[in-house]
Amino acid sequence: MKEIKQIYYNDSGTSFYWRKQNEVIIDKVQLIFRETGFYFSRLELEQFKRCIEESFTLNKCCDDCSLKNECHKFLLKTPCLQIDLAVSMQELTAVKDLVEGTLFKINLNDYLFGVGMN
């Protein structure tokens, strides 16, 4: 595991930086969700977060349903124009947590080891 520096994980996936010759490469984040890997810049990660938020807005029809978010899948757009993911509402919630947790940890580290240092 010395080839990576983990950023965040949950039951559906993980995010990490790659290491090359003992140096952490922070310009891109490897995001693994289910069996799919994305190699995103921070800007692309922010775009993915907006795609997820848009999907929540477009597919919030499960509140009155007896199956409660487990019945069907819909397409989740990604920053890669050629790639959409088929996800259920449960999976959408999990990838939302993964992306938001990753961005939170990145921003926290930037603050702690950047502007926040005295």
Results as ranks from 00 to 15, higher is better:
Thr14Met: 04
Thr14Phe: 05
Tyr17Glu: 00
Arg19His: 12
Lys20Arg: 10
Asn22Phe: 11
Ile25Cys: 00
Ile26Phe: 05
Asp27Glu: 12
Asp27Cys: 04
Lys28Asn: 03
Val29Gln: 07
Gln30Ala: 01
Gln30Tyr: 01
Ile32Asn: 07
Phe33Lys: 03
Phe33Gln: 02
Glu35Tyr: 13
Thr36Glu: 09
Gly37Cys: 10
Phe38Val: 04
Tyr39Ala: 06
Ser41Trp: 11
Ser41Ala: 10
Leu45Lys: 05
Glu46Leu: 14
Phe48Pro: 08
Phe48Arg: 13
Lys49Val: 01
Arg50Lys: 15
Arg50Gln: 15
Ile52Ala: 02
Ile52Met: 00
Glu53Pro: 00
Glu54Pro: 07
Ser55Thr: 12
Phe56Gly: 05
Phe56Arg: 11
Thr57Tyr: 11
Asn59Glu: 11
Lys60Gly: 07
Lys60Met: 03
Lys60Trp: 04
Ser66Gly: 09
Ser66Arg: 13
Ser66Asp: 13
Ser66Cys: 08
Ser66Met: 10
Leu67Ile: 11
Leu67Phe: 12
Glu70Val: 02
Lys73Glu: 15
Phe74Val: 02
Leu75Gln: 09
Leu76Val: 13
Thr78Ser: 01
Thr78Phe: 01
Pro79Phe: 06
Pro79Arg: 07
Cys80Val: 15
Cys80Tyr: 13
Gln82Asn: 01
Ile83Tyr: 05
Ile83Glu: 05
Leu85Val: 09
Ala86Lys: 12
Val87Trp: 02
Ser88Val: 02
Ser88Glu: 00
Ser88Tyr: 03
Met89Glu: 13
Glu91Trp: 05
Leu92His: 03
Thr93Ala: 00
Lys96Thr: 14
Asp97Thr: 04
Asp97His: 03
Val99Lys: 13
Thr102Asp: 03
Leu103Val: 15
Leu108Phe: 12
Asp110Met: 06
Tyr111Glu: 06
Phe113Val: 07
Val115Asn: 08
